[in-house]
Amino acid sequence: MKLGIVVLEGPYQHEASDTAYNFTVAALEKGHEVFRVFFYHDGVNNATRLMVPPQDDRHIQKRWSELAEKHNLDLVVCVAAAQRRGILDEDEMKRHGKDANNIAPGFRISGLGQLIEAGIQCDRLVFFGD
């Protein structure tokens, strides 16, 4: 089946990000197609490569990035939500005259239309949030 996954909460603050990740791994293991993981609200904070968690804890961003690489996942960060919270890629950095960007490998910034498209294309859409 084709699944879409929506993450509405940030890393470490809320378990939603962990649940979404574990769900995604299980769905892939079962042979389902994960059409897209869409990060919205504070969920966009999962995409910063600048997080430095303690070494004995999980690295939530790296975990997503590695999963994306392994399974060619489409990790999409909502541009409007990302701009509010300071998640930028190189294009956004230049456009807004900022001195840095922080998006992690495997994530891409795009519009809310990507969420609607996931709703149209996927057999199931699953939300994880607060």
């Binding site: 089946m1 574990n22 769900f23 299980a26 769905a27 079962k30 389902h32 057999d123 199931r124 699953v126």
Partner: peptide, 9 residues
């Protein structure tokens, strides 16, 4: 989590 996936599908 696999059972969660099954419930979704």
């Amino acid at each position: 989590y696999g059972g969660f996936v099954d419930l979704v599908t």
